[in-house]
Design a protein around this nucleic acid. Structure first.
Length: 822
RNA sequence: GCGGGUGUGGCGGAAUUGGCAGACGCGCCGGACUUAGAAUCCGGUACCUUUAUGGCGUAUGGGUUCAAGUCCCAUCAUCCGCACCA
C-alpha cells in the first residue's frame, strides 16, 4: 500500500462531501432526532485554535450520533453584524458588507478544510436582509407584547466603540469588546424587558440538568434575586416620603440614618435653600464625575454629606438624619437605604466616620454585645432587642414576622428584588439590524408595518470615528413618511445589539428558507431544543441568558412549545500555549491552517481531542501533534500489513476457529467498542476514547510479523474504521474505501459482542491488611464465599500471616480479596 | 469579602460506583534494522533503599473505612466568576 498522504486524500474526500446534498438534513420521524450545535462564529476572517477545538468536538458528536441511528441536525452560520466590520470601513474605507462577506468566504473554506459535516444548505448569515428581516419582525413582536420600550436612562457608554452597552456587556467597568473604560450617560434608549422573566429565568435553571453548574450559578448570581420588605419614611417638614428596600427587616428598629444615592430625585427638593447647599452640590458633582469602576468598588471609602433634613422611622417614631452618600446605588432597589450601623458593615463604617448614632437591635445570646466594645457590625445570628414587641425573637424568624406586621399596619410590603436590569438593546452603530421604528410628529412612535420589512441598511452613509450613529448621515434612510398618517417622519437611526441576532439563530437553522415567517412552529418543535450546545464559557451570561429569555417570550407568543433552548451545554476549555491564552501580543499563536497544511486536518482534530478533556484548558504541544500524526500512520501501516487478510476475510465466521492470541485481540477489539461507545455516548470523554483506540492498534501490532486469521482481520479493520470515523473522517473514509463497500460515514455504529468480552478466568488481587501481596487467576465471577474460602489456602498468604490471626476477609468478585490479620 | 473549580511522574493526562495509582500520549534511556542518519519496530521509565516475596507515594495535616487520588474536617496554593445589590 502507498504511504499515508493526508495532503492527497483530504482534498479528495472534501470534494465528495461538498457535493450539494451529501450532508442534507431532512425531517425523518422514523429516527430519534438530535440537534448538535456549536456557537456560530463572528466572521473575523480566520479560524483560530479555539474554533478548531469547538468544531472538532461538535463534529465528533454529530458524526457519532448519525452513525448511532439518530437523525442529526448539524448546521453552521455566521454572527455577521458587529463593530469590526465598521472599523474596517473607518480605517480602510472598505464597505462593511464586503469586508464581512469576504471573511465569511475564507472561514467557510477553512471549515471545509477541517472536514466538518455541516449541512451548508442551512447556513445563516445574520447580516443578510432575509435574516435581519425576521430579527426586526421579532423586535416588533416584543414591542407588541410590551417587552420593548424606549426610555431615557443613565446608560453605559463606550467612547471607543461610540455606542451604548448593555449591563451584561460591561466587564469590570470595561467594554466587553474593546476593553476600554465605560462611563454613564443619560440617553433615550431602547430596552427589552428581560426583568419580566427574571423569576422564570431563575427558576428554570433547575430544569437544566445538562448544563455545567458553574454556568447556572453565574446566571443565578446575575439575576440576583433577594427577598425583603419595602416601606417608606415620612420626611420631616415636607410632604414627601422616602421609600426603601431592605433584606434585613429584622434590623428595622436600629435605623439611625437614611442614605440616598446622589441621583435620588428627592434631593433637589430637600437641599433647596439649605445653608450648605453649594457644598452639597459640589459633593454630588464629584461623586457623579467618578468613574463607574471607582464608584462601585467596595474598596472605595464611604463618603456622604448631611442634607440638614430628617425623616421618621415608622416603627418607632425615631427622627433620623438624611444623608447623601457615594455608596448607595441608584439603579438597585429604590436608590435609598436605611442605615443600621450596628448590623451592616458599610453602615458601620459610614456611621463611625461621621459620628452617627448606633443602636444594637440584635444581641448574641451566647456572648452579650456591648456597643462600646464593638469595632465591627454584628452580622451573625442572634435575638432581637430594643425592638418593641419583637424583643426576644430570633432574628431569622423575625424577618418574616416583621414583614407581616408592616403589612398589617400598612407601613410596608413584602418585596422581591432582582439585580437583573432590563436589556439595553439600541446601538449607535451602522452594521447591525435597524430598529424598525418611525417617529412621526403627529403620531409619535410607530412600528414599520410588517409588509415593509426589512428596513434595509442604506449605503450612502459616512463612517467617522466617534461620530453618532452613521445611519443618521443617510438622507434616504432618515426621511420617510408615517405609516399611519402619511405625514413627514424620520426613522430610528440606532441598530440592534448583535446579541439579538444571535438569540434566535438556532431556530432559523431549523427552517432557514422560510419567507413567510422567521420559522414554522411545527418544524422548530421537531428539531429544537438543541440537544447538545457547545461553546466557550465567555457566554455564560450574555448569549446564553438572552437566548433563554427569547425562548420564553416566543413560547408565550405561541411560536414554539418548549421552555429552554439548549438541553445540554458543553463549555469547552481554552487552547493555551506556554501557559497563556494564544494571542498576537504574546506571539504564541499557532495557525490552524499551517498545522493542517503540515499534518492534515485529521491530525489536528485528533490531537486537539486527545490532549485534554473537553472542559479543561488544552495545552498546545507541537510534539503532541507529531504523536497524533504517528498514530494515524500506525493505523495506515497496520491495515496495509493486513491488506490481503482483510480482503480475503468474511463477515460471518465461526469465532471458535481463532487461536488463543487471536481470541485475545478479538476480546480487546470488543472491549474497545464498548469503551469508545460509552465515552462518546454519555461522557464526551474523547481523550480516553482515543487512548482506547490507540491500545487496540497497539494490540494488533502483535500480528505484524505473523499470519492473522483473515476473518478476524476483517472484523478488526471494519470496527476500527467505524470507530475512527467521527474523529478522523478523511483517513477513515479512505481506508474504508480500500476494503469495504459504501461510505464509512453512513455505516451503523459498531456493536460489541458481550460473549467476546467475557473471560474464563480473571486476575484478582490478594491483599493482606490492604497491601497487595499476590495476584491470582480465578474463574470469572467466582462468588464472594468461594473467594473468602480460597484466600487462607494460598501458600503466600499462609507464609505472610505466620502465627497472626485472621480477623476478617473481605472479598469483591473479579476485583480483590483483602485478608485482615492481627 | 462572597461563590465555584482545580491540585496525581520531567510534561499533557488516566483511574466512570471507595477496590492493583500513573492507562494512553509526549519526553527521556536502552536495543533491533542501517555504511550512517531519518523513519520504523521492540523493551524500559514515580520516588527511595539494603534490588525484592522491600519501603514509600496522588498539595499539606487530621479523620472515617478491611480498603481513600476518590468520602468527611481543617489548612495551603492556584485559577475563574461576582463584588458597596442594602
Amino acid at each position: 500500500m502507498e504511504k499515508y498522504n493526508p495532503r492527497e486524500i483530504e482534498p479528495k474526500w472534501q470534494k465528495i462531501w461538498d457535493e450539494p446534498n451529501y450532508y442534507k438534513t431532512e425531517i425523518d420521524k422514523s429516527k430519534p432526532k438530535y440537534y448538535a450545535l456549536e456557537m456560530f462564529p463572528y466572521p473575523s476572517g480566520n479560524l483560530h485554535m479555539g474554533h478548531v477545538r469547538n468544531y472538532s468536538i461538535g463534529d465528533v458528536v454529530a458524526r457519532y450520533r448519525k452513525m448511532a441511528g439518530f437523525n442529526v441536525l448539524h448546521p453552521m452560520g455566521f454572527d455577521a453584524f458587529g463593530m469590526p466590520a465598521e472599523n474596517a470601513a473607518i480605517s480602510h474605507g472598505v464597505k462593511p458588507s464586503d469586508w464581512t462577506f469576504s471573511n465569511i468566504k475564507n472561514m467557510i473554506r477553512q471549515q471545509k478544510q477541517m472536514g466538518l459535516d455541516y449541512d451548508w444548505n442551512r447556513e445563516v448569515e445574520t447580516c443578510r436582509a432575509d435574516y435581519y428581516r425576521w430579527t426586526q419582525w421579532l423586535f416588533e413582536l416584543f414591542y407588541k407584547r410590551g417587552l420593548a420600550y424606549k426610555k431615557e436612562a443613565s446608560v453605559n457608554w463606550c467612547d471607543t466603540c461610540g455606542t451604548v452597552l448593555a449591563n451584561e456587556q460591561v466587564i469590570d467597568g470595561k467594554c466587553w469588546r474593546c476593553d476600554h473604560e465605560v462611563h454613564k450617560k443619560n440617553l433615550a434608549q431602547w430596552f427589552f424587558k428581560i426583568t419580566d422573566y427574571a423569576d422564570e429565568l431563575l427558576k428554570d435553571l433547575d430544569k437544566l440538568e445538562g448544563w455545567p453548574s458553574r454556568v447556572k450559578i453565574m446566571q443565578e448570581n446575575w439575576i440576583g434575586r433577594s427577598e425583603g420588605a419595602e416601606f417608606s419614611l415620612q420626611v420631616d417638614g415636607f410632604d414627601e416620603k422616602i421609600s426603601v428596600y431592605t433584606t434585613r427587616p429584622d434590623t428595622i428598629f436600629g435605623i439611625t440614618f437614611m442614605a440616598l444615592a446622589v441621583e435620588h430625585p428627592l434631593i433637589e427638593k430637600l437641599i433647596a435653600g439649605q445653608p450648605n447647599e453649594s457644598e452639597i452640590r459640589q459633593f454630588i458633582k464629584e461623586t457623579k464625575d467618578m468613574s463607574d469602576m471607582e464608584r462601585t468598588s467596595s474598596e472605595s471609602e464611604k463618603k456622604g454629606i448631611f442634607t440638614g433634613v430628617y425623616c421618621v422611622n415608622p416603627v418607632n417614631g425615631r427622627k433620623v438624619p438624611i444623608w447623601i452618600t457615594n455608596y448607595v446605588l441608584f439603579e438597585y432597589g429604590t436608590g435609598a437605604v436605611m442605615g443600621v450601623p450596628t448590623h451592616d458593615e458599610r453602615d458601620w463604617m459610614f456611621a463611625t466616620k461621621y459620628n452617627l448614632d448606633k443602636i444594637l437591635v440584635i444581641d448574641n445570646p451566647a456572648a452579650p454585645l456591648e456597643l462600646s466594645k464593638m469595632d465591627n457590625a454584628y452580622i451573625e445570628k442572634g435575638v432581637l432587642i430594643n425592638s418593641g414587641e419583637f424583643n426576644g425573637v430570633d432574628n431569622e424568624s423575625a424577618k418574616s414576622k416583621i414583614i407581616d406586621w408592616l403589612e398589617d399596619k400598612k407601613i410596608g410590603t413584602r418585596k422581591i428584588n432582582y439585580k437583573l436590569r432590563d436589556w439595553l438593546i439600541s446601538r449607535q452603530r451602522y452594521w447591525g439590524a435597524p430598529i424598525p421604528v418611525i417617529y412621526c410628529e403627529k403620531c409619535g412612535e410607530v412600528l414599520v408595518p410588517e409588509k415593509d420589512l426589512p428596513v434595509e441598511l442604506p449605503d450612502d452613509v459616512e463612517f467617522k470615528q466617534g461620530a453618532l450613529s452613521p445611519l443618521s448621515t443617510s438622507k434616504k434612510f432618515n426621511e420617510c413618511t408615517c405609516p399611519k398618517c402619511g405625514g413627514k417622519a424620520r426613522r430610528e437611526t440606532d441598530t440592534m445589539d448583535t446579541f439579538i441576532c444571535s438569540s434566535w439563530y438556532y431556530l432559523r437553522y431549523a427552517d432557514p428558507h422560510n419567507t413567510e415567517k422567521p420559522f414554522a412552529r411545527e418544524i422548530v418543535n421537531y428539531w429544537n431544543p438543541v440537544d447538545q450546545y457547545i461553546g466557550g464559557i465567555e457566554h455564560a451570561i450574555l448569549h446564553l441568558l438572552y437566548s433563554r429569555f427569547f425562548t420564553k417570550v416566543l413560547r408565550d407568543a405561541e411560536l414554539l412549545d418548549y421552555d429552554e433552548p439548549f438541553t445540554n451545554l458543553l463549555t469547552q476549555g481554552m487552547v493555551i500555549k506556554d501557559g497563556a491564552k494564544m494571542s498576537k501580543s504574546l506571539g504564541n499563536v499557532v495557525s490552524p491552517e499551517e498545522i493542517i497544511e503540515k499534518y492534515g486536518a485529521d491530525t489536528a482534530r485528533l490531537f486537539i481531542l486527545f490532549a485534554a478533556p473537553v472542559e479543561r484548558d488544552l495545552d498546545w504541544s507541537d510534539k503532541g501533534v507529531e504523536g497524533s500524526y504517528r498514530f494515524l500512520n500506525r493505523v495506515w501501516r497496520i491495515l496495509g500489513i493486513f491488506e490481503d487478510a482483510i480482503k480475503g476475510g468474511t463477515e460471518n465466521y465461526d469465532v471458535a476457529t481463532l487461536n488463543d492470541e487471536e481470541k485475545i485481540l478479538r476480546r480487546i477489539l470488543h472491549k474497545t467498542i464498548k469503551k469508545v461507545t460509552e465515552d462518546l455516548h454519555d461522557r464526551f470523554a474523547f481523550n480516553t476514547a482515543i487512548s482506547a483506540l490507540m491500545e487496540l492498534v497497539n494490540a494488533a501490532h502483535n500480528f505484524q510479523d505473523k499470519k492473522i486469521n483473515p476473518d478476524l482481520a476483517r472484523e478488526f479493520a471494519k470496527n476500527l474504521l467505524i470507530m475512527l470515523a467521527p474523529f478522523v473522517p478523511h483517513i477513515a473514509a479512505e481506508l474504508w474505501s480500500k476494503f469495504f463497500a459504501g461510505d464509512v460515514h453512513k455505516q451503523n455504529w459498531a456493536k460489541f459482542d458481550e460473549a467476546a468480552i467475557a473471560e474464563d478466568t480473571v486476575e484478582i488481587v490478594v491483599q493482606i491488611n490492604g497491601k497487595v501481596r499476590e495476584h491470582i487467576n480465578v474463574a470469572n465471577n467466582l462468588d464472594k464465599a468461594a473467594l473468602e474460602k480460597l484466600a487462607p489456602t494460598l501458600p503466600r498468604v499462609q507464609n505472610l500471616i505466620g502465627d497472626k490471626k485472621i480477623v476478617k476477609i473481605v472479598a469483591v468478585p473479579n476485583k480483590l480479596i483483602n485478608v485482615v490479620v492481627r
